[in-house]
Design a protein around this nucleic acid. Structure first.
Lengths: 154, 154
DNA sequence: TAGCGTGGTTTTAGTTTGAAACCATGATTC
DNA sequence: GAATCATGGTTTCAAACTAAAACCACGCTA
């Protein structure tokens, strides 16, 4: 992996993560991991991808610290793949992806799975970006600022 | 594109979007579009990718309704690529990706660009998933529910 | 000891990628 | 008005990646 380094020396905060999860399958594996899947065979059956690809993706996710391998909980000779802290940190991203998908990839009345609050069984709220003072922010209300180069900091 | 169809007939709410933006470059192009880039040459210079690839990616993003082409605003003979509503809907996802990247891909004191509120210049809040009643939800506090099949609905 | 389930790796062919070269169009210079 | 240049692509071709299938290793079971 780590196939392409940007023409700029240091990759930005968006590009770096994409090196870890920037392919089709990795995020689906992570989603399945959130759904409780742990075993090689479970992932393969759920996703229907070739075993060599799954193998490579799992290896990559483990190498990036998104999954961790632990001995199989059933005492079997195999291992299980579980989300690390870093992997769990992907939850908002998956929710964002799902909400975008629901908004734009389904017909208005097309049924689709829904993410609900386990306690109340009600759908979750939409993700919202807010300012420190709580105002909701649209894309246009934000700017990217670059840190001052080292020789200008005090 | 649309290279792989899941073994299940209908792709889920996470998989469908990945068909549109599930490759390394597409999201970076969209991010640059949020940053105001519009021209082929601007994207190429910013991302440093081969022209044929950029060409293919832009075509794909337009085909998926994420970008739209409009006549060049400077009256030149070329076109510009601008985000559609659907494309703008990707903003939360980009923010989620960025925040995850900041959390796990930078050393504690490593400087990196920051997303700030244009009005106050303060960093934005973290994205948070909340229940209808406002409680904050972690991954474990949520469940996926599948809609009842058509023949069970009333 | 012959099979079977799980979890992979290897092989091989097909697809995608990316760098460079090439092309088309309109504006600019001479 | 012919040559040059800038922009925005397409074409070509080698290298890298992906995917399906075959194969392998290990432990268990009959």
């Amino acid at each position: 992996m780590a196939k392409r380094i940007s023409h700029k020396d240091s990759m930005c905060g968006v590009a770096r993560p994409l090196d870890a999860i920037g392919d089709w399958w990795s995020l689906l594996i992570v989603r399945d991991a959130f759904d409780g899947l742990r075993r090689f065979g479970e992932f393969q059956k759920s996703l229907g991808l070739a075993k060599n690809i799954l193998s490579a993706r799992l290896r990559n996710l483990v190498a990036h610290g998104i999954l961790d391998t632990i001995p199989a909980s059933d005492g079997g000779p195999y291992q299980e793949y579980v989300l690390t802290q870093k992997g769990q940190g992907l939850f908002p991203l998956l929710v964002a992806l799902r909400q975008w998908g629901e908004d734009f990839f389904f017909e208005p009345n097309e049924p689709h799975v829904t993410l609900v609050d386990r306690a109340t069984k009600l759908p979750v709220r939409r993700l919202e970006l807010r300012a420190q003072d709580g105002r909701m922010l649209m894309a246009e209300d934000t700017v990217i600022v670059v840190p001052a180069p080292a020789d200008e900091r005090e």
